[in-house]
Amino acid sequence: MKITFNINGEPRSIDTDGEAPLLWVIRDGLNLKGTKYGCGKAACGACTIHVDGMQVRSCSYPAKFAEGKEITTIEGLSQGDNLHPVQQAWIDEVVPQCGYCQPGFMMATAALLKEIPNPTDEDIDNNIINVCRCATYYRMRKAIHKAAALAKQNPSE
């Protein structure tokens, strides 16, 4: 079936099996490889994207539900060279090691900050439940607080 949606601000149409996970439509159909396959059953968060501003694990989200929606992936988190506060914080704190899970974490964090602009450690513990095997959680926590502070400095972000 033909599915039409906005992705990272651009209207796109794609022919796909409507039941196919949106993850693979994004990765292979639209060649946006920043959204990662991790588990295929919404258990790790590597494939986290935003659908109409809400975080969604795209490996378990049928493509047909994307019809008419506003999709954001890691490639669309920044505005050109203008980094999203979460990405800037990730750079400032030198968070990534292997880096594979990081787009999912950054998307989950961006969603968190939208709902809770000043998260406590407990908010972070409860809301950020993605998996990082390099176990960079310690720096991520710092980066999440940093991102909250950066976003406050630049409220336009």
Partner: peptide
């Protein structure tokens, strides 16, 4: 020194 692969990994570049 910041990691040399930092930017790619933060931007979601297709590196894997």
């Amino acid at each position: 020194v910041p990691r040399v692969d930092l930017k790619e990994k933060v931007m979601g570049a297709p590196i894997f």
